[in-house]
């Protein structure tokens, strides 16, 4: 999935200049997928439409801060996710979380980004985190593309289940119909590639705990492919 396409960038540029036709076009292009995203949770069309409406309003109000290098669709989905979270919390379906472990401030509502931290602190650490995240995303993308080009779909699938779904090796092995050792080898290869990218780019190891959690759980073994 590429970052924002040229067509999206132009569309956003027109919206920024107040072009109503462009805004109408943006709504037409994205409302269906946003509605499907929200409705899968609300199960009610009218409420889902309200959330999508708030999403579009949220997009316009946050437009001055939108970085057009970022995927437009991804940005809209993230706003929709926030608006949906708010809606579900209002309905009492999404329980409020304590702000930090050990506290139980039921009165404070949860937000994905720490709202009560000083703006300067968020901005400073946000910039650094953004760079680290982009560097690791590029390394993961490079590995996925390489596997896809080689037709190593099994490795893409295994890495996705291990790291995106968080499944254990044995569950991945069972679902993909391969041995646990093969899963462990795929994991080893993936982590080794990412560690190398972290080293090459001089990123701090401690901010990627999964990469250094323990020694890789397998070396390359006989059934490595």
């Amino acid at each position: 999935m590429p970052a924002s396409s040229q067509a999206d960038k132009l569309l956003v540029q027109r919206v920024r200049s107040g072009d109503e036709e462009a805004w109408n076009e943006l709504i037409a292009r994205f409302e269906g997928r946003l509605l499907a995203f929200v409705e899968s949770r609300t199960r009610q069309r009218a409420r889902a439409e309200d959330v999508v409406q708030e999403t579009f309003i949220g997009f316009l109000t946050s437009l001055p801060n939108y970085d057009s290098r970022r995927s437009l669709e991804g940005y809209l989905f993230s706003i929709a996710a926030h608006k949906l979270t708010d809606q579900l919390r209002r309905e009492g379906r999404r329980p409020t979380l304590p702000l930090s472990p050990g506290t139980s401030s039921g009165a404070s509502s949860w937000e994905p980004r720490g709202r009560d931290r000083p703006a300067s602190s968020i901005l400073r650490s946000g910039e650094r985190r953004h760079l680290e995240e982009n560097a690791l995303a590029a390394a993961i993308r490079e590995q996925i593309v390489q596997w896809q080009r080689r037709g190593d779909w099994e490795k893409v699938r295994a890495a996705e289940l291990l790291f995106v779904r968080g499944w254990a090796n044995r569950d991945v092995a069972a679902r993909l119909g391969i041995s646990e050792q093969t899963v462990a080898n795929h994991k080893f290869e993936f982590i080794a590639k990412l560690r190398s990218a972290v080293r090459r780019q001089g990123l701090p190891e401690e901010v990627f705990p999964e990469l250094y959690a323990d020694s890789p759980d397998a070396g390359r073994q006989d059934d490595d492919r």
Binding site: M1, S71, G74, S78, P95, L97, P98, L99, S100, P101, G102, T103, W110, P112, G114, R117, S125, R128, R129, E132, E133, L136, A137, I140, R141, I144, V156, E160, F163, V164, R165, G166, L194, V207, F208, P209, E210, L211
Partner: peptide, 30 residues
């Protein structure tokens, strides 16, 4: 809830998770 709050705190402290990065950047999405 406390487990989730701890995860939020880890994020606030600047720790990354591979799955979150993969998902956010939609690295394998068709």
């Amino acid at each position: 809830a406390h487990e989730l709050a701890a995860l939020n705190a880890r994020r606030d402290a600047g720790l990354h998770s591979l799955g979150a990065i993969w998902r956010r950047h939609r690295l394998s999405c068709p």
